[in-house]
Amino acid sequence: MIEFDHVSKVYPNGTVGLRDINLTIKEGELVVIVGLSGAGKSTFLRSINRLNEISSGEIRVGGQSVTRAAGRQLRLIRRDIGMVFQNFNLIKRQNVLSNVLSGRVGYHSTLRTMLGWFPKPDVAIALDALNRVNIREKAYVRADQLSGGQQQRVSIARALAQEARVILADEPVASLDPLTTRQVMDDLKRINREMNITTVINLHFIDLAREYATRIIGLRAGEVVFDGTPEEATDEALAEIYGRPVLKDELLGGVS
């Protein structure tokens, strides 16, 4: 589904973001990327839909090369990849439904979207997406009146309305409290299972990674230093990723 083929990224100032990454993420997997901040987690994730350019190698999603695509072709690939951000990236003063509908602009002509006329089925898709994250009743409420957890669900709904086959989540729970963190992770997990959407998540908390992932990838200085099941991700193995024992603030705690 997602293939990394000798992917490297060197920033203009010489910092290495990614170093010769080769791996394949299969359809329906829920992959969690762990590692220290600055280890290249975000670069890894954002290179999949080419929000970040890579320096060499090739990334393919669903068999199509993201690296070589351009213009309309790239936009069509991106349309199939939903993304969830740490800061939700919603338009705060618009209502929830408008925010979710904005995920569907890739399906329509420029002219039609400029006028803002979405066809009826699109509205139904958007409302259905809100239903899946249990905030259907907030559809006509302004986004800035929702709590952080609810806003993150809106952005998940936006990715769902996109009818994406892959969802990328860049630190989706970093600005949420522990309780809503679990609710959002539960939503992502459920969507992954029920709709068989390949999901890649960057996480800071390693106990969350163990709890939700079907596969954990550990990055250190842009290199893959761990790739295995949650069971294999023992404290010793994680100490290897971090280059030191796991700290308390890297655990969310309170596993129920």
Binding site: R93, N95, L97, R136, E137, K138, A139, Y140, V141, R142, Q145
Partner: peptide
């Protein structure tokens, strides 16, 4: 006009229908 949140209106299921 900013659509006001109407939090406590259990009878009419707030937010289920678009505002006029």
């Amino acid at each position: 006009a900013a659509p006001q949140a109407e939090p406590l209106q259990p009878a009419s299921l707030p937010g289920m229908a678009p505002p006029p």
